[in-house]
Design a protein around this nucleic acid. Structure first.
Length: 586
DNA sequence: GCCGTTTTCGGCCCGACTGTTTTCAGTCG
């Protein structure tokens, strides 16, 4: 059973509890939802943790859920869960995938219409709604019937939060809306918040906060956005619409003197806010997007800035990328947050594909070495590493391969003279399924070092794949493992690797893991970065640019590093040129 | 059912909006 399947099962259990008796099982519901969230976010399979006897290390898993997990992994089912879900049609859990369908609504409809086939449940409900059968039910009406038809249509089209956006796309959409909002004179400030501000790799919706003394006017302006498909909701302080591209945009408005609390609230994450509010409550303070209320006196204090807001709870300001409730609150209380890396700390980029005709096994870059160097100078870099894919081994003899690399290096040597940016002669070399590198030793000798990576035969057993990667990395010239998980966001999962072994090896042998900044990679992932740092591993943040404009994507890689709590000294390309030269030789 | 810088017992964030309702339930973030 995969983590995702286990998380889904736990959510079904929570839903079943709320259908049967929400009041009675209030805290079990929260407990199972929390455990589901934690399990879904794990970088290790629950199956493996079970084998290693480490189930209790999962946050939100206590003695009871631990025994449930053991039973589940041993026998494939849990007797207690079967009791909890007894009498609830399986259609309920399918319907709940559709936004606006919670446990109550899904159950009412499934039970009343005897929906026995979970596979067709969503279509069945749509048909009943179109026939006007749902409006007849108590608690439903014509409007909610229409809403159901629309919700199902949008769900099938992948609108709303069903399909998540890559970061740069979400940025672009939000910038357009911000520009539009700022044309209104009642908008004092407008900012993007939510997971976009926290720089998560995938963004479900776009959250925007506005400071204004006239919220009504701002919301009127907001819902008249020209690229709007339909308004989802509209109240005095908040509103949402769907863009023509099918993305949900949420707006919240507060007066300027209370904008700090709104920034904090709407940036999230949910877990961060819940923890923060629980902590504040113990001090007699109740937090909300409006400000901080003294529970005893009932007096509300407002905050212009987030810094003042955090300070009033007795802690230092926390960078948005760290707000995931993974220990940042405790550190902020003690004023001990790490000073995480910033874009301006980056002094170069090691993963650059030029258009030099190296006859590679994979794709060539679009811009010349000169053009890439010019861009590096604009970015203020000290150095750049050229790492085209290795010449294809099937189409060349060893001799030809060595000649091609020599030619590229000669070109670099000529261009070096006129460049203010220092150059490293690298290559991105495939690790073959055997674990050997796709370049002969006499070719590798021509290089300052090489990036190694997997580009074929992804489906290997975890142990075999780990052995393959370690074998590739063990060559003395191999210094960086590129896009270590191999995942492509919204496209494919990564290959199976034992990262504990990889981390150990990298630390002992002075190899770096890449944080690939390319938006559909963002690989290593934030959670693995955090674990790797704890294991003492170093990183390089690289753009993997195949064109000069892509070198601007560095900020997304830095965001992953920040989400993984990386500091400057964890990152090789925060070192100066001399130090990097030493590092490649180490 | 989990968890600990008030606690191993007694807590468990806070508020918005919609539709179907005459005061609230359901869903969402």
């Amino acid at each position: 059973m995969t983590n995702k399947e286990i998380a889904e099962l736990f959510r079904d259990v929570a839903a079943s509890y709320s259908i049967k008796n929400e009041a009675k099982f209030r805290f079990q519901i929260i407990a199972y939802q929390n455990a589901a969230d934690a399990i879904e976010g794990l970088t290790t399979q629950v199956q493996d943790l079970y084998k290693e006897g480490r189930l209790e290390q999962i946050p939100g898993v206590g003695p009871t859920i631990k025994t449930r997990l053991e039973e589940l992994l041993k026998t494939g089912k849990v007797k207690h869960f079967e009791e909890v879900t007894a009498g609830i049609p399986p259609a309920v859990f399918v319907l709940m995938q559709v936004p606006s369908f919670g446990p109550k609504k899904a159950y009412k409809l499934s039970a009343h219409f005897h929906l026995n086939n979970a596979d067709t449940a969503i279509d069945d409900i749509a048909k009943l709604a179109k026939k006007g059968e749902i409006a007849k039910l108590e608690g439903f009406g014509e409007k909610s019937e229409k809403d159901i038809i629309r919700a199902i249509t949008e769900f099938k089209e992948g609108k709303g939060k069903t399909t998540k956006m890559l970061l740069p796309y979400a940025h672009e959409v939000s910038e357009q809306i911000l520009d539009y909002l700022r044309t209104n004179k009642d908008v004092v400030r407008a900012e993007t918040l939510g997971s976009l501000r926290r720089m998560k790799s995938l963004v479900g919706d776009i959250d925007i906060a506005v400071a204004s003394n006239n919220p009504k006017k701002v919301i009127e302006h907001f819902i008249n956005y020209p690229r709007k498909d339909r308004v989802i909701e509209k109240g005095p302080a908040t509103s949402s619409f769907l863009t023509t591209g099918g993305n949900q945009v949420d707006l919240m408005v507060q007066p300027p003197e209370g904008f700090g609390a709104l920034l904090q609230h709407f940036t999230g994450s949910k877990d961060h806010n819940v923890h923060l509010r629980e902590y504040a409550l113990k001090k007699g303070l109740s937090l909300s997007e409006r400000g901080i209320k003294n529970v005893k006196t009932g007096k509300m204090q407002k905050f212009k800035t987030e810094e003042e807001f955090y300070s009033a709870i007795g802690m230092s300001w926390i960078p948005p990328e760290m707000r995931e409730d993974s220990g940042e609150i405790e550190l902020a209380i003690n004023n001990k947050l790490p000073k995480i890396v910033e874009l301006k700390d980056i002094k170069g980029d090691f993963h650059i594909h030029s258009s030099f005709a190296i006859e590679p096994s994979h794709d060539l870059g679009k811009n010349s070495i000169t053009e890439m160097l010019k861009k590096a100078e604009l970015l203020g870099y000290e150095y750049l590493g050229f790492s085209e894919h290795n010449p294809s081994i099937s189409k060349h003899t060893n001799r030809q391969i060595v000649d091609l690399i020599k030619k590229r290096n000669e070109e670099i040597d000529i261009l070096k003279e006129a460049s203010n940016v220092a150059i490293f002669k690298l290559m991105e070399t495939d690790i073959l399924p055997s674990g050997k590198l796709a370049l002969p030793d006499n070719a590798l000798e021509q290089l300052d070092g090489t990036i190694v990576s997997i580009h074929s035969v992804f489906k290997m057993d975890k142990n075999e794949m780990t052995k393959r990667v370690l074998s590739g990395l063990s060559h003395p010239k191999a210094k960086i493992l590129a896009h270590p998980t191999g995942r492509l966001l919204n496209e494919r999962y990564g290959y199976d690797l034992d990262f504990e072994q990889i981390f150990q090896f990298c630390k002992e042998n002075n190899k770096a893991l890449e944080i690939n900044a390319y938006p559909n990679r963002l690989d290593l992932t934030d959670t693995l970065v955090r674990l790797a740092i704890e294991a003492g591993v170093k990183f390089t943040i690289n753009t993997d640019s195949h064109a000069s404009y892509q070198m601007d994507l560095m900020k997304y890689g830095v965001a992953v590093a920040r989400r993984g709590w990386a500091i400057k000294s964890n990152i090789v390309n925060c070192l100066n040129y001399i130090e990097v030269v030493k590092w490649f030789k180490s």
